[in-house]
Amino acid sequence: MLLECKNLCKSYGTKIALNNVNLNIERGRIIGLLGPNGSGKTTLIKILSGILTASSGEALISGNPIGIETKKIVSYLPERTYLSEWMTVRQAVNFFKDFYDDFSEETAYDMLERLNISPADSLKTMSKGTKEKVQLILVMSRHAELFLLDEPIGGVDPAARDYILKTILTNYNENASVIISTHLISDVENILDEVVFLKYGCLMLHKTVDEIREENGKSVDALFREVFAC
């Protein structure tokens, strides 16, 4: 088992963001983490990446509790821009190369070239969308075991969206899993193996996409609209 969440809870004061989440993820899967705003998707991803500490419960990645050992094998893409503005793209690549043993410089430069992003460009002068592309390239250039992607296609144009999804598909190996949190279900539906629905911090559903289609006779997007109808 790659990821095990046992009775995971997170609260901010009186507000409960995650409520007793139990979730197991195997290797070699692409999982859609879906839910309306405030359902706890980002909170769950932040806990798994080590940005937040759970109020109670336990999360294990490759059998290790969240810490330095899990950070070595988890590649995390947050929904915000986290690269330092003083850096050039080349310096950002060097930064990842310096700190992550599983980072492939060659893969990163290859993807940058395909997206016409010059390594000499300064991050300060880049548009938000281009910065997000650079971040995704850096994150996907790692041979990590678990990729946590929080809204990876939210801020980019549809053409780049296709490229990003193709990148995700081609850059993870059978030993790794990818968890994608997004609202754009129809865009990612074709690449997903499993879906996890979260509502008010509770895990509502965890099924394979095939099971949803067979049992419910619906697409993931249609089921989402039905389950989370306002």
């Binding site: 990446s49 080590g50 940005i51 330095i68 050992e69 950070k71 070595k72 988890v74 995390y76 947050p78 915000r80 986290y82 690269l83 330092s84 700190f99 992550y100």
Partner: peptide, 9 residues
Amino acid sequence: EGYLMHTLP
């Protein structure tokens, strides 16, 4: 930037 720094190993 803490999102990167605190996820470094």
